[in-house]
Amino acid sequence: MPESILTSAPVPRKTMVLFFLIDTSGSMFGTKIGSVNNAIEEIIPDLKKMSEANPDAEIKIAAMEFSNGIKWVTPDGPVSADVFRWEPIEAMGVTDLGAAFTELREKLSKSAFMQEAAGSYAPVIFLMTDGEPTDEWQKPLEELSENKWFVHAIKVALAVGDDANEEVLKKFTGNENSVVKATNSELLKKMIKFVSVRSSQVASRSAAAVADNGLKPTKQEEFLDELKTAVEEMRGEAVVSDDEWD
């Protein structure tokens, strides 16, 4: 039985990977890691919906946890938001951020995690941590900063509580405006949701053509603009005491 010509394949589309780099050191134990697990689990359906309706790009997720060394939650590479399932992660050990940078650099390569036939848009890289790195991180970050995927990525860092070293996070994102801080679980969940969903939305579509002033905002600039307003609103709305983790 011949098929109608109208029985076609989907249009070829790019891929956009959302990377989660999650600190699972012992200090994250309890409500911090609990909120992270809960927030990520809840945004998956939103990412799935966005990916399903987006002819520019499919959204995939890659997640790495770091404490005593690193471990990929998605060891076989980025997983499509359509089928991704979040298994809760545990917190225990130290904060090997340098190891995470080295591992990320290795996987940000077309021979590793970025091997889509139709190509990819630059990824989103979302780092969450609550403390000081316990290993050598400067050299690994320097090397990571030379990776082309990393250079073009939308990079956001979330300081969980007051003890995270925000200077390290600023060096990681290359921009102080892309470092945000959550001091209680309610804010943490809201920020994870906003950053993951909106950054993926911006990163997974064809770039903006032009703005009214003739200047083109980059995806990173466009997102940071929104992030600033959103964080102000979230802080205004937060009802839980601001020092939950002090």
């Binding site: 076609s8 394949a9 989907p10 249009v11 070829p12 790019k14 077309k110 970025m114 091997q115 889509e116 036939a117 139709a118 190509g119 990819s120 848009y121 630059a122 082309k148 995927w149 073009h152 064809s206 770039a207 083109k216 980059t218 995806k219």
Partner: peptide, 21 residues
């Protein structure tokens, strides 16, 4: 069911904003 400008030259591993332009 294909973009008119998306052939082999539009498949860089990383489609940056500069490359889109």
């Amino acid at each position: 069911m294909n973009h008119p400008l998306e052939g082999k030259a539009a498949m860089p591993p990383c489609m940056t904003e500069e490359l889109e332009q």
